[in-house]
């Protein structure tokens, strides 16, 4: 095989970024069946894969919000190479509303930072992973109203192309609540077994597809593979 006579060195540019906020459930029930252990292993594999991906390693910034009865931004949006996964403990309730809001705030803050620094960016993602039903004690009597408010905020974000929102249910999660907060183009996914590693592999490929302009609905529904139980409504 002859060598191609065309060759050229490319200039150095700062890569445009895409933020992914992972809102992960660390409530007490996540300790059952080693769910949290599997999720953390999946996260570690995801970060490693992004680090090794020429296309994503300088493009994807990952942030993590861990929640139980309280929520914490445990990892601020960073390139995969700069992330050190914190120790996550399974304990407490499932106060989802504040946590999802914190994830939305995280991508919003990062977009503001990009704009301030003259950086272009791809549409960010908020990924919500839970194994249970949201805890209505979070807002007492106002819980249902607050959940509807959150659902409206997420749907508006889809119309205004502010961020993509995806919910992943694990094991015995209750899909009814997650169905209410989904975006029209992105179904609620139910994980088959605890194949977090496969899920995150699919996620990085999907984000890359959307980043180059592919239709979100089409990208999320292609090749979900073994991790998807196929029971999620679409």
């Amino acid at each position: 095989m002859t060598t191609n006579p065309f060759s050229a060195e490319s200039p150095k540019n700062y890569e445009q970024k895409c933020t992914v906020a992972l809102v992960v459930d660390t409530s007490g029930s996540m300790s059952e069946h080693s769910r949290l252990v599997n999720m953390v292993a999946g996260l570690a594999a995801f970060i490693k894969e992004v680090q090794e991906d020429e296309n994503l390693k300088n493009k994807l910034e990952i942030g993590i919000v861990a929640f139980s009865h309280e929520c914490r931004r445990v990892v601020e949006p960073s390139l995969a190479a700069d992330i050190q996964l914190p120790e996550l403990k399974a304990e407490g309730g499932t106060f989802s509303i504040q946590a999802i809001r914190a994830g939305i705030q995280m991508v919003s803050d990062r977009k503001a930072w990009y704009r301030t620094n003259g950086l272009s960016y791809y549409r960010p993602w908020v990924i919500h992973i839970t194994d249970g039903e949201p805890d209505s004690r979070e807002f007492g009597g106002e819980f249902e109203a607050k959940w509807d408010e959150l659902a409206q905020q997420i749907r508006q974000a889809e119309q205004q192309k502010t961020f993509c929102f995806l919910s992943l249910g694990v094991d015995e999660f209750k899909p009814a609540y997650l169905e209410r907060i989904k975006q029209a183009q992105i179904p609620v996914y139910k994980m088959s077994g605890l194949k977090f590693t496969d899920f995150f592999k699919w996620l990085s490929a999907t984000i890359a597809e959307v980043a180059k302009g592919a239709d979100v609905g089409k990208a999320v529904q292609s090749n979900t593979g073994s991790w998807d139980s196929g029971q999620s409504p679409s």
Binding site: N4, F6, S7, A8, E9, S10, E54, N55, A208, E209, A211, K212
Partner: peptide, 14 residues
């Protein structure tokens, strides 16, 4: 051919 993967930057571009 060059446009497709002529250098690492071109190759990485999806």
């Amino acid at each position: 051919q060059f446009i497709l993967a002529g250098n690492p930057t071109l190759k990485a571009e999806r």
